[in-house]
């Protein structure tokens, strides 16, 4: 079985547009002076962390050098905003029992970017019995476990056991997914596969389940014009072995793009002139689009080459490993 041959031209244009918009929007990702004290982490650290996560991946794995360069520049910018990691020492000292500083730090640590004091702090805080107490849901715990792995810490729980408790591992009835549950499933896949770097971690059972039901979820959330979620579902699709290429879905997502290369989260692009508002309304889905189109491009190349997909680990921070000889 071979995967679906994609449309590299379309996929590349989406990465190009998204990266271009992200470049133009750098200033909105900058951290304010009160980022570790009064600022809302959801409006500051979260966007920066997401930018870092996905540009790191694109910077290593996208087949086209010009996209890798742009992405690497954005990733370097993100690291710069953390003041070479000093931010994490401050964050952890300020909120030693919160998981998000560790999750954020892991994004950079996987690429070899570390801060000595932050390392020492996380080494202590993540050994606490208290650290094993789940602060959020199981999906989030998968993310924390992934961060621990990236940093080189001992994982505080068995990821297989946690996975079984998630919306993905529980293999729910596909018609029982609402928006919240659908986002849970996409993130379960991202944490499990390290954002598509280790697609083979998807078991055949989970892959089969996703292959069956992704088309119905995609169809639904495209109809609702939730481009953000649709993009994530497309990213998940690209993680499947012999990944199919849902051409119509990609075309619909492409149709949602604004002229400036951004993709709105829902519906039509905001017409508000307020640039900060426009940023908040678009940055997430624009990032997701770049991410999904990168994974889909990789999957499409694999299908083109006739190689079996999903049997090559593409660890963070390194280029693709030697692939096995195609059968």
């Amino acid at each position: 079985m071979t995967g679906g041959r994609g449309d590299p031209g379309l996929l590349d244009s989406m990465v190009h547009g998204s990266l271009g918009w992200l470049e133009e929007s750098r200033d909105f990702f900058r951290l304010p002076p009160n980022v570790t004290t009064d600022a809302d982490p959801n409006l500051t650290l979260k966007p920066l962390g997401e930018l870092a996560e996905l540009t790191q991946l694109i910077g290593v794995l996208h087949p086209r050098d010009e996209f890798r360069q742009t992405a690497r520049g954005l990733f370097a910018f993100a690291w710069n905003e953390t003041r070479d990691g000093e931010l994490f020492a401050e964050l952890i000292r300020g909120e030693p029992f919160a998981t998000y500083p560790v999750e954020l730090y892991g994004v950079f640590a996987q690429a070899g970017l570390r801060h000595a004091e932050a390392d020492a702090l996380v080494d202590t805080t993540t050994r606490l019995r208290g650290w094993r107490v789940a602060r959020e849901d199981h999906t989030r715990t998968l993310g924390v476990l992934n961060a621990e792995r990236r940093i080189g810490l001992r994982q505080h729980a068995d990821s297989g056991a946690v996975l079984a408790l998630t919306g993905l591992g529980g293999l729910p009835e596909p018609w029982a997914l609402d928006r919240k549950a659908a986002y849970g499933v996409t993130h379960d896949v991202f944490h499990l596969t390290d954002w598509g770097r280790n697609r083979q971690r998807l078991s055949p059972e989970l892959a089969g389940y996703l292959r069956l039901w992704l088309p119905s979820w995609l169809e639904n959330w495209l109809e609702e014009q939730l481009w953000d979620l649709a993009g994530e579902l497309l990213a998940v699709t690209a993680c499947l072995p012999q990944a199919p290429y849902p051409a119509q879905a990609w075309q619909r997502l492409a149709g949602a793009r604004a002229a400036d290369g951004s993709v709105p989260e829902i519906g039509a692009a905001p017409s508000s002139g307020d640039r900060a508002e426009a940023f908040t309304a678009c940055y997430h889905s624009t990032l997701v689009t770049a991410f999904a189109a990168t994974l889909a491009r990789i999957a499409s190349d694999e299908a083109e080459a006739g190689r079996p997909a999903g049997d090559t680990a593409m660890a963070g921070g390194r280029t693709s490993c030697e692939s096995e000889t195609a059968p």
Binding site: K46, T139, K180, E265, H284, L287
Partner: peptide
């Protein structure tokens, strides 16, 4: 906008300026 748990949580809830 209840949305992505990309890293920390879903895309941040914004003040409602219009109803979908």
């Amino acid at each position: 906008l209840l949305a992505a748990l990309l890293l920390i949580s879903p895309p941040t809830p914004r003040p409602k300026t219009d109803v979908r």
